[in-house]
Design a protein around this nucleic acid. Structure first.
Lengths: 117, 117
DNA sequence: AATAAATCTGCGAAACTATGCAGATATGCA
DNA sequence: TGCATATCTGCATAGTTTCGCAGATTTATT
């Protein structure tokens, strides 16, 4: 079995997991610090169950992991570099982001790291 | 409208476009040189129409572009760096690739660049 | 003009994903 | 124990993507 096929299948898998705006925002929210489900649900303005489902998908694919403390479940990135890798993908979006110079990825990283609207 | 939402939506879009094994292989095939539809269909072992459909999706999202010469349509990557970025994603696949040390991404790049099975 | 090669387009069936909601667990506190 | 909080699970519906095939285009050749 051609290993390029296997590699392509695995890569396709991970791209598919990440390919959802909510999950991307979750990953970016977890950049740098762990957070619990409720906090995440509130910052993203999404219903709790939905966040929970996204998180368990991310967990099944070992993108995040969970730490329980009482009734809170804190999630964190297993490999924090993934947050940067995702944002790097912006280089390949052609001028679709009015107001954000597509060549300046660092600006977007800062945007995500900051508390700006 | 929070710009992080917009950014996440655009990123999700591009991830979704790439998130298919055939399209990933197409992009990797186009690493370094343009190729026509038939050549691509043969190397991937896929029916022509399917390759054509994948390519037009990639084209609609400005990942590839086309040059026509007679009845041949040659496709090439608009931003060749995308091929490397995609392969970088391998860092985030946890031990799913038996036989390929996940930490050694360069080996996989070589695999893709070479003609090995 | 007729034919062949290369590629594209359209369409229905099957497979997959997302969403919203209701109810199940599990934990902490009075 | 009983109640509130935090999170998870399951399910039905709606929506999207993929796939295979048939037919339409376009260009080169005879």
């Amino acid at each position: 079995m051609p290993s390029r096929m296997v590699v392509a299948r695995e890569l396709g898998e991970i791209f598919k997991i990440i390919a959802h705006p909510d999950r991307i925002r979750l990953i970016e929210e977890l950049r740098g610090e762990e957070k619990d489900v409720n906090t995440l649900a509130e910052s993203l303005g999404l219903p709790g169950p939905r966040v929970s489902q996204h998180l368990s998908l991310l967990r099944a694919h070992r993108i995040v992991d969970e730490r329980r403390d009482g009734r809170h479940h804190y999630y964190h990135l297993i490999q924090p570099e993934i947050a940067d890798w995702i944002v790097d993908g912006l280089s390949f979006i052609e001028g679709k982001l009015a107001g954000i110079s597509t060549s300046n990825i660092k600006a977007v990283r800062r945007l995500w790291a900051s508390d700006a609207p």
